[in-house]
Write a protein that binds this DNA or RNA. Structure first.
Lengths: 225, 225
DNA sequence: GGAAGAGTGTGCAGTTACTGCATATTTCTT
DNA sequence: AAGAAATATGCAGTAACTGCACACTCTTCC
């Protein structure tokens, strides 16, 4: 029994090779101007292998999707005492997405590529959106742990979904800030600032909560195309 | 000089034909199981024409992207007296995206297709995200109209961006609700309920604003893949 | 140490969305 | 009716992605 596993090491090597090749090519030519074939040639693997590893062209830049949060993590989130669902959930998602990949160089290079290719940021967000249902379920475990019942409060379903939708938006913001902001600021610090921003925005609104859509419906008259 | 323009009428006809063909096919076989060629055959146009009209396969289901809000609309948004930036901006976006297409049948059919194909909802959101920069600019016009200066308040840039990010999330939620919710509920009503939900979620959090990330950094120990 | 078995790499052929370009057809203008 | 402008189409090509069959390599277990 190999203590480490030659297989695993090889696997890690190819993965890293493809990754490096892709990132370097993207840095040099721009993500949109490189093809999967170029990456394959540069990393000396077949196209098929490339897709076996990363599944898509974006995948190699955005990184492999981590496995969903463990039951432990979900449990920890569900049992937190506070009422800050949004903040706690965001913390969970950030840990899920961002706390990995120890290689600082790669992280840095990824950043640069994504920064030069706004479309990639959107794809990142879209990729996250595919877990919407699972996320909603996670939020629900928290509500249940707090004794809030789905049957008793019909809005609870909507509330969970809104938490997730908001989180997706905020995550997009956070990712974006991580690119441009001083890399010194830790992610959790960034998150805290984001939450503060949200409060500033929404609290402003909570005082004159009344007038929302002054015109009942008036902009109908617009020419098409 | 033709009062109406034969050209325009023909154009509208082909567009409608393609649209109908696409939606019907999607309803029958599912969006993922139809090809652009099938749509073209069914609507008797060349593939090239299809792409001339809709640009992409999603485009024909999601509808043509409306032109950005007019300067008038932006101005109206900028000059609104209240402090509810988020609500007002959401109203603007909803008007931009949703207040068009008088044909109820088509709207209904679209709904069904999108409902059956969650991926389409994400693409819709992604498509909207491409206007992020323009949206941020719009929010800024409002801040400027209110005398808030970018130079004086360095966080203003971030605040505008956060408004847009949040809006994207909320719009995703709204679109989703429009699918499942009783079609009776008007969109503006839905929006109002959404804003209320946001307040419920964020106000809960504003009281115990302190404890955010209890564990400083501990989940590092996770096996990869 | 060698055979069986599981995991990996690769070639190939095919599908599908999408684009540029040249050209034909149709409608509008005057 | 002629020329300009818009529209429709065919064609050829690119690039991402998939399924499948087969070869190769590491692991395991006797």
């Amino acid at each position: 029994m190999a203590v480490d596993g030659l297989r695993e090491r090889k696997r890690a090597a190819t993965q890293a090779a493809i990754e490096r090749a892709a990132i370097n090519l993207a840095l040099e030519h721009g993500y949109d101007n490189i093809t999967v074939d170029m990456i394959c040639e540069s990393s000396m693997v077949s196209q098929r292998t490339f897709f076996n590893y990363f599944g898509s062209k974006e995948g190699v830049i955005l990184g492999v999707i981590p496995p969903l949060p463990s039951d432990q993590q979900i449990d920890a989130f569900a049992r937190k005492a506070g009422t800050d669902v949004l903040g706690d959930f965001l913390t969970l998602v950030v840990e899920w997405l961002l706390d990995q990949e120890p290689d600082a160089d790669v992280v840095m290079a990824r950043r640069t590529v994504i920064m030069q290719t706004p479309e990639l940021l959107n794809k990142q967000t879209a990729r996250m959106a595919e877990f919407e249902e699972q996320f909603v379920a996670i939020v629900h475990t928290r509500y249940e742990a707090q004794g809030r019942d789905r049957a008793a409060d019909p809005d609870l379903e909507d509330e969970a979904r809104m938490v997730v939708s908001l989180s997706t938006g905020v995550m997009h913001y956070v990712m974006r800030q991580r690119l441009s902001a001083s890399p010194a600021a830790s992610t959790s610090e960034l998150l805290r600032r984001s939450i503060k921003l949200i409060h500033r925005i929404t609290n402003d609104a909570s005082q004159p909560q009344n007038r929302m859509a002054p015109k009942p419906r008036s902009i109908r008259s617009r020419t098409r195309r």
